[in-house]
Design a binder for these strands. Structure first.
Lengths: 339, 339
DNA sequence: AAACAGAACGAAAATGTTTTCGGTTTGTTT
DNA sequence: AAACAAACCGAAAACATTTTCGTTCTGTTT
């Protein structure tokens, strides 16, 4: 654990000169620069970040807050951010709000207090106010929201176009010949849940099908049992349903399991499509059609946006909203042989 | 971004007194303690970790290095460590070695240089030497290895008993009536791969079945296609195989897919069991039997071990190896009706 | 009244780095 | 030879905190 002082002593130089030699200041002779660098390499010197921060106010730390860490989509975002950060010599502090506003608030305030260079956040389901985000903005810490954004907060945003993706998914079912399409939607609050619902409605309208609110069911956890539970009710009340657009792959799988148990053929009797294209989608039987949400690309975009805020110095960057394209992945659960 | 100085100025006290009031020193009057704490709470003061470290040499940071971030098991460990850390006022720096020794080495050395209070590591598949770990030990940074440990390195360890778990899984197949059980094993290097292989062999021996190395196939990535690829060869060469113990759930699923395609009935013709009990195991058809590896418990144990090293002060704690029990989860892929 | 004890607080050093500013040396120009 | 510029280096302050060691009071004991 060598310090600049140690190097200075060993080479009979001042701490200042050593520091400047390593940072390639021009008021240090080439000779001493070489001498210093050689020695620094020899003892594997790396500057102490904590001390450096104190002086430069740059922590080289990024705070990442995710709502859930047992979640394929968020994990892929995490993976890409960690990877990108490392390549740019940033380090990532990871937090999990566990879908709780209180946790999220504490974590944001904590990160602000720790002077991280940037905060990357996907807001929790239960976040209904944004004072903590205002605080981060007040402290001039770049705030980048992704996927679960807050429309009321002006910040950098990286999202997918949930409405369009839902529109495409529903349209696909219609093109496969579905006439009576149910939707298992998400909870009322999160924006993506609303957007996907609207995309579903618009697709029906666009293709001249009537919207029937009795075909819409609300999932509270977006888990497998939500799907199977609603599938049961749906089949009882509307045995002639022939298509389902579910808010997540897990919900879709839960529903498929119930349909199959009841003897429905997928996709001939009911065509099903999910959302997110988890790894699992390609492994269930029948393979589940889904909308790909590319977490890897989202993470990359978040990071590149952040890096832009860093190089520009004080010159404030205008907020932007980046839309990552999503893609329909058609598999057996919705691919009907020619109608 | 309040500092001690700000509080001191506001309350007309010295920085020293404020610091001591917050840390409950006994040479501060109760009155001022209350005054300071009330104000600190009001402005949401939290000490700057970087500055605090400089003086106390405690960073309150934990470095966590995982081989893979798109992996259900490691993600559950990550989730529990992040959660436990937060409860104990530690923060987690997350790195991903991507199964590369070079990455892992750089990351460990980096963490050492950053003076993290502890390093939690599951070593990469390609790690064949341990000089970086020795370095961490030399710097007296507690090193806790989990799941993928290095037998050559003396350190704290948290593992599951892979050999016993594999023994149990194989025994279960035998009890279900399997006579000719194949094993799709992992790569040659990682310890867990070896341990599971040995568990398989011992179970055969214990139950009086002959070990046949022609029934063992090596997977290099432990992914779905490993399973389907080997399943194809296996069926061609040994059409009378009636059981398979696969090193991971994904490998097992890949194999099942191929078996089903070829018209084999599972579990009647071939009983299959995987390893790790990913979420996916319960959702495929037929549902996959597996060995539960409780990542959540592993993470908790890692953290509690670490906390012990922190409270004891300088008094060196003896290295221990904690074994987390694993559990057999029997599902349709191996549950045969009475033989 | 002198001496002392104890309570409450502050000054200051230390941690490792960055960066400004000033100083010394060397060489170049009038 | 005087003046000046350029090249090179170091002193020191600053960042926020912790902790040791004094200092100043009050009140109590001889």
């Amino acid at each position: 654990m060598k310090s600049l002082k140690d190097i200075a002593k060993a080479l009979d130089l001042s701490v200042a000169t050593v520091s400047k030699a390593l940072k390639d200041y021009k008021d240090v002779s080439t000779a001493t620069k070489l001498r210093v660098r050689a020695y620094a390499k020899e003892v594997n010197f790396k500057p102490n970040l904590h001390a450096a921060y104190l002086r430069s106010q740059k922590t080289k730390l990024i705070g990442l807050i995710l709502p859930d860490l047992n979640h394929y989509f968020f994990n892929s975002i995490l993976a890409s951010i960690v990877e990108e950060a490392e390549q740019n010599e940033y380090r990532v502090l990871v937090f999990c709000s566990k879908e709780s506003y209180e946790n999220e608030k504490q974590q944001v305030l904590d990160l602000v207090q720790q002077n991280v260079d940037g905060i990357f956040l996907s807001i929790s389901k239960s976040t209904y106010q944004y004072d903590h985000l205002e605080e981060a903005k007040k402290q001039k810490i770049p705030l980048i929201l992704f996927d679960r954004i807050a429309k009321a907060i002006n910040s950098f945003r990286v999202v997918i176009d949930d409405k369009k993706a839902a529109f495409d998914a529903t349209s696909h079912l219609i093109q496969q010949g579905c006439k009576k399409i149910a939707h298992f939607r998400g909870d009322l609050i999160p924006q993506m849940s609303i957007d996907r619902f609207f995309g579903y409605k618009e697709a029906l309208k666009f293709h001249g099908l009537e919207f029937d609110e009795n075909l819409v069911y609300i999932c509270h956890d977006n888990e497998v049992f939500d799907g199977s539970k609603h599938a049961e009710t749906l089949l009882q009340k509307h045995p002639d349903v022939d298509g389902l657009f579910a808010i997540t792959d897990l919900v879709a799988i839960g529903a498929m399991n119930h349909f199959i148990k009841k003897g429905c053929r997928i996709p001939q009797d009911i065509a099903v499509i999910g959302f997110s294209n988890w790894q699992i989608a390609s492994l269930v039987t029948p393979a589940l059609s889904s909308v790909e949400q590319n977490g890897y690309q989202i993470g990359k975009k978040v990071m590149s946006l952040f890096l832009k805020t860093q190089i520009k110095g004080n010159q404030e960057l205008p907020f932007t909203t980046e839309v990552i394209p999503s893609k329909l992945i058609v598999r057996a659960s919705s691919r009907r042989t020619k109608i």
